[in-house]
C-alpha cells in the first residue's frame, strides 16, 4: 500500500497553494480573497512542518509554522477590519467596486 510520507504532504501543500491562488484570481468577493490568502499561508505552514518531521530533523520548521499561525491571525484581523471599513463606505464587498484609484 502507499505509505503516507513527505511526498503526500508536499502534494497537499501544493494543492492548497494552487487552490489559494485560484481563489484569489477567480473570486470577486473580498472575504473570499482573504480566505484564499489563508489557504496559501496554511500550505506554507504544512510544508514547514512536513519538511521538519520527515527530511530536515530540526525543530525550526515547527517554530516557523507557529509563527505563521500567529501572524496569519493578526493579518486576518486587520484585513477584516479594513474590509468592514470599505463595506461601510461603499456598501459592497465586491473587488470590482474598488476602482477609484487608477492611472
Amino acid at each position: 500500500m502507499f505509505e503516507i510520507g513527505l511526498f503526500s504532504y508536499l502534494v497537499i501543500g501544493l494543492i492548497l497553494f494552487a487552490t489559494g491562488i485560484l481563489v484569489m484570481i477567480a473570486r470577486k468577493n473580498i472575504i473570499a480573497i482573504l480566505l484564499g490568502i489563508e489557504l496559501i499561508l496554511n500550505a506554507a505552514a504544512l510544508n514547514f512542518v512536513a519538511y521538519s518531521k520527515y527530511s530536515v530533523g530540526n525543530l525550526d520548521g515547527h517554530v516557523f509554522s507557529l509563527f505563521i499561525i500567529v501572524v496569519a491571525a493578526a493579518e486576518a484581523a486587520v484585513g477584516l477590519a479594513i474590509v468592514i471599513r470599505f463595506f461601510q463606505i461603499k456598501e459592497t464587498a465586491h473587488i470590482d467596486d474598488a476602482v477609484l484609484l487608477k492611472n
Binding site: I40, L41, A44, A50, Y51, G79, L101
Partner: peptide, 26 residues
C-alpha cells in the same frame, strides 16, 4: 480603497514568499 488594496496585495505576496521559504528550508 488604498488600505484594502495594500492588505490584499500584501497578503498574497507574503503567502507566496512563505511558500518559497518553506521549500528552501526543506
Amino acid at each position: 480603497e488604498g488600505g484594502l488594496k495594500y492588505a490584499l496585495y500584501g497578503g498574497i505576496t507574503a503567502g507566496m514568499m512563505l511558500y518559497g521559504m518553506s521549500h528552501i528550508y526543506g
